[in-house]
Design a protein around this nucleic acid. Structure first.
Lengths: 190, 190
DNA sequence: AGCCTCGATGACAGCAACTGACATCAATGA
DNA sequence: TCATTGATGTCAGTTGCTGTCATCGAGGCT
């Protein structure tokens, strides 16, 4: 075997989620996470920029998948329909990860600092979607607004998907949320 | 005169914005802010929960005004129209504060930690609007989605309002953004 | 006047997040 | 064989933030 136990990054992420779940985010020190992964505090910060980031390793993957789906939507699809393709891709990504997502979301919801980090990840997703829409010829401010609307749908759909009693597929919930948005915005305004 | 120079809170906020603008957020220590306000570091933390919060003292006022306008919209107004009333109230609040808003926004945009804090303030605004809409009889997920859409409009409108060359009124920009959202969401989806 | 309570601030010690600098040493490959 | 590389360890230092106790003028009560 090599000089070090493999996958230090993964071990840190696993240890962090476990400890944050058990005793809470604030009550967990980085040194403890590192020790549980058989590493030192300094090494933790070589793998993750800060104590929060360790919970958001997958957000880049989500963004890439979402954006690629938007970019790959039929050329004649309306902007919001292209975003809907991204929502479908996201739903597929999360298939079979519901228990993990629930545990992780419980940790995040319990701490405002973690919620902040999640929000900036979603803002980054929104920016990337908007840029992709502009690449499809959508002009501002329509691109940004469509992207923001799409992320709002994702947020609402995701929230429902991780809700305790929920059993429906994420794709169904995303479609429901998207339809609800269309209805809400279309409702008899002057 | 009193035992202490008045308005410690305001002096801290003023000193913080000035220092963050001059030398950057990260390069400014809380002790320096406090010193410029004629106070100690410990007193800073008695007025503001952390180093970021000092830039967001006004967000509660915005939220209250926005929410009150939504609650006070005509009983028969559609949810999105009620939110539009909130946007108008927000626009009024910012009248004559453009230079301040520009300076503050430049500071925030330059640091990810400050952006995070701004995002959670907007998320709080969205939650409050959604709750108000539910109070008007709007059901979920329409309430949350309408609120998120409204905040998206606010974000886009505000961004444009603080843009360097922009001279139009915030109310005009908010209306434009709202119309763009309606158009984008209504666009020929199946 | 004399006294008391209150509240904003100061002083100080301490923890933990994060960073920079340098050392270590198995694996790798020329 | 040996120099290089790269992930990790070690250690010292800064700073955000907190708990605790002291200070002392203002304002009320007698």
């Amino acid at each position: 075997m090599g000089r070090w136990v493999p996958d230090a990054r993964g071990r840190l992420a696993k240890a962090a989620l476990a400890l944050y779940s058990e005793r809470g985010y604030e009550q967990t020190t980085v040194a403890e996470i590192a020790a549980h992964a058989g590493l030192t505090e300094r090494t933790f910060f070589r793998h993750y920029a800060d104590k929060r980031e360790v919970l958001f390793a997958g957000s880049q993957e989500l963004q890439t998948l979402f954006v690629d789906a938007v970019a790959g939507a039929p050329r004649d699809a309306a902007p919001l329909e292209a975003v809907a393709a991204g929502l479908d891709a996201a739903a597929e990504l999360f298939t079979d990860r519901r228990p993990f997502a629930r545990q992780r979301q419980a940790v995040i919801a319990a701490n405002a600092n973690l919620v902040e980090r999640e929000l900036i990840k979603l803002a980054s997703l929104s920016s990337a979607i908007a840029a992709t829409l502009r690449g499809r010829g959508v002009t501002e401010p329509a691109a940004s607004l469509t992207a923001e609307a799409g992320v709002a749908v994702f947020k609402v759909g995701f929230e429902r998907w991780v809700a305790p009693a929920e059993t429906r597929d994420m794709a169904d919930l995303m479609h429901e949320a998207l339809d609800a948005l269309k209805a809400a915005v279309a409702a008899r305004g002057q």
